[in-house]
C-alpha cells in the first residue's frame, strides 16, 4: 500500500513546478489576426451561452490544439481519451458533461476550418493531428442535438484577407467541399433580428482589443445567432450576446456560397455598429462574447489542504491495516 502512495507522491512532487507555471506567453489579442501568420480562432458557444468570441493566436502553431493554447483559451480533453476537446473555457460545465469519455454526438465541440476570406468547413482531421496553414482561421462551434448534416458553423464568417497578402489555402483533403455547410446557405427571410436595446450596444462595443471580457455572472440565457441572406448576396450576421449585451453587425464576404476555398473575397469588411468608429478598424469587427476564455472555471488548484488530507487519510488507513496484519501474524 505504501508503494503506490510513494509513487504518486513522487510523480506529483516532480511536476509541482509545472503545475504552477503559467500556460503561455500572453501575446494573443482579441479580434482577427492582423498578419498572415497568426491563426484566428473563433469560439461560438451557441446554446451554452457566452456568444461568439474571436481571438488571434500568434503563429506559427503546431496543431489546432496548440492554436487554442496560444490564443490563451482554456480547453480540456476528456480524461480517458485525451485527443478530443471536451470543454472550452469550462463549457459545458461538469454538471452537463463529466468529460470522462468522449462527449456524445448530441453535444460536442465541432472543429471548423477556413482560409481567410473563405467559407467554414467541417474539418476532416482532429485538431490535434492537423497543422493549420499560417494565417488560416479555426472555429469551434458547440453542436447541441444537431444531426451530422445540420451542424452549426461558428456564427462569425471567416474574416477577410489581411490587406496586401495572399491567403494560404487549406491542405487538400482537410475539408470536403461538398459537405461543408456555410453560414449563409440557409434560405432565411431577409430580415435582421436585433433584440438588444440600442442603449446597451454602446456599452460593450467600445471595448478595446486586448482587454479580456469579464466573465458573465450567474446563469444567463443563451445567445441567439441569426444568419440571414439579404437579396444582395451580402451576408449579415447578427449576434446577440447574453441578455442582449453585445450586438455587432458585420458584412461578411460575398463568396459564402462558393464551394472552392481559394477564391479571394471581393467584399471588404465594414461595420455598421453605431459606436465602432471609436475602435481601431482592423479588429473592431470581432463580436465579443461574455466569457473569459482563459478561465476554465476550476479555480486555482494548487497543492491544497484537501489534497494533503486525502493523502494523509489514505496513508493512515493503510498503516492501520499493516499494523493489524502484523499483530495477527505475530499471534499465529
Amino acid at each position: 500500500m505504501i508503494r503506490p502512495l510513494v509513487a504518486v507522491a513522487v510523480v506529483a512532487a516532480s511536476s509541482s513546478l509545472l503545475f504552477a507555471a503559467p500556460a503561455t506567453a500572453d501575446e494573443w489579442y482579441d479580434g482577427p489576426c492582423t498578419d498572415n501568420v497568426g491563426i484566428t480562432v473563433v469560439i461560438d458557444f451557441q446554446e451554452l451561452g457566452g456568444g461568439v468570441n474571436v481571438r488571434c493566436a500568434p503563429g506559427p502553431v503546431t496543431s489546432g490544439l496548440d492554436a487554442l493554447d496560444k490564443a490563451g483559451i482554456a480547453w480540456e480533453p476528456p480524461l480517458r481519451e485525451p485527443g478530443f476537446v471536451c470543454r472550452i473555457a469550462g463549457q459545458p460545465g461538469p454538471d452537463r458533461e463529466a468529460c470522462g469519455v468522449t462527449p456524445p454526438p448530441s453535444a460536442y465541440w465541432g472543429y471548423w476550418i477556413a482560409p481567410r476570406g473563405g467559407a467554414w468547413c467541417y474539418s476532416n482531421m482532429g485538431a490535434g493531428n492537423r497543422v493549420p496553414p499560417p494565417g488560416s482561421v479555426e472555429g469551434w462551434s458547440f453542436a447541441l442535438d444537431k444531426s451530422s448534416t445540420r451542424l452549426p458553423p461558428p456564427g462569425f464568417a471567416p474574416p477577410a484577407v489581411t490587406p496586401g497578402t495572399t491567403p494560404n489555402p487549406l491542405s487538400p483533403g482537410e475539408c470536403s467541399a461538398s459537405a461543408s455547410p456555410t453560414t449563409t446557405t440557409s434560405p432565411a427571410p431577409p430580415a435582421t433580428t436585433t433584440t438588444a436595446a440600442p442603449t446597451t450596444v454602446a456599452a460593450t462595443t467600445t471595448q478595446a482589443p486586448g482587454n479580456p471580457v469579464p466573465p458573465a455572472g450567474g446563469a444567463a440565457p443563451g445567445p441567439t445567432t441569426t444568419s440571414t441572406s439579404p437579396p444582395g448576396a451580402s451576408a449579415t450576421t447578427t449576434t446577440t450576446g447574453v441578455a442582449g449585451t453585445t450586438t455587432t453587425t458585420t458584412n461578411a464576404p460575398t463568396s459564402t456560397t462558393s464551394t472552392s476555398t481559394t477564391i479571394p473575397p471581393v467584399a471588404t469588411t465594414t461595420t455598421t455598429s453605431p459606436t465602432s468608429t471609436t475602435a481601431p478598424p482592423s479588429s473592431s469587427v470581432a463580436p465579443l462574447g461574455t466569457v473569459d476564455l482563459g478561465d476554465d472555471q476550476r479555480g486555482e488548484g494548487g497543492f491544497g489542504f484537501a489534497t494533503a488530507a486525502g493523502m494523509a487519510a489514505a496513508g493512515a488507513l493503510a498503516a492501520t491495516s499493516f499494523v493489524v496484519v502484523r499483530r495477527r501474524a505475530r499471534l499465529e
Binding site: L18, E76, P77, P82, P94, G301, A306, A313
Partner: peptide, 26 residues
C-alpha cells in the same frame, strides 16, 4: 457526489490540477 460536485470526481488534467479529496467521497 457525481451529481453535486463532478469536477472533484474527475480531476482536471488539462490544465494539470492536484486531485482533492472531497467531503462526500471522504
Amino acid at each position: 457526489a457525481s451529481a453535486v460536485d463532478p469536477a472533484n470526481l474527475y480531476p482536471s488534467l488539462q490544465p494539470l490540477r492536484w486531485p482533492e479529496l472531497g467531503l462526500l467521497p471522504a
